[in-house]
């Protein structure tokens, strides 16, 4: 076994275990920590299969920004043990049934697909420059659509927050 393979299996195991733990924790903060670890593990997998740019973006954007906002919301709600109790009630075995069935279908599909593709990953390392050239070359339409979506989100957030802006606040406005 090469070192890359060992690292890959280690990262994959960490990713799977932490994702399962993230799903089954009753405490929201603990679940989020496991989710962050899972994202970091998938960043390592991205790096190992030759996509360093995607790996760092996974850390900067998902682990470093989006999950911070999740933790932020958990902090604002400040649920405490009441939240744990409620989560305990929601996570009963009957709740698991339907998602587990749907996941089983997906799992069978992926096993089916994998059993027919024999070729592994090419292992070509994609430099950040290549990603940029591709993004603003053939995929420029997707970039534009994504930016429009973000702009719409921004305008929507402004609209929702506008009525609080008109109130007198402690600011220097």
């Amino acid at each position: 076994m090469t070192i890359e393979l060992i690292l890959f299996y280690l990262a994959a195991t960490v990713s799977l275990v932490s994702t399962i733990l993230a799903l089954t924790r009753y405490n929201a903060a603990h679940a989020l920590i496991y989710l962050i670890i899972s994202l970091l593990a998938s960043a390592i997998i991205f790096y190992l299969v030759g996509a360093p740019f995607a790996a760092v973006l996974e850390i900067v954007i998902y682990a470093g920004a989006i999950m911070v906002l999740f933790v932020f919301v958990v902090m604002i709600l400040n649920l405490g043990s009441r939240g744990d109790h409620q989560e305990h009630e929601w996570l009963n075995p009957r709740m698991w049934l339907m998602p587990a069935l749907l996941c089983l279908v997906l799992f069978l599909e992926i096993v089916y697909v994998l059993s027919f593709t024999s070729e592994g990953l090419s292992g070509v390392v994609v430099a950040p420059k290549t990603v940029g050239i591709k993004l603003f070359g053939p995929y420029v339409l997707a970039v534009e659509i994504a930016s429009m979506l973000l702009l719409a989100g921004l305008v929507g957030a402004y609209h929702l927050g506008r009525r609080y802006l008109s109130d007198a606040r402690g600011g220097d406005q």
Binding site: F53, V56, V60, A65, V68, F72, A127, P128
Partner: peptide, 19 residues
């Protein structure tokens, strides 16, 4: 070849400590 982004990623992970 992603050193700058790596640095930004590490500083953004440091936020969790405080949080």
């Amino acid at each position: 070849n992603i050193a700058l982004l790596f640095f930004l990623g590490m500083t953004s992970l440091a936020v969790y400590s405080v949080l």
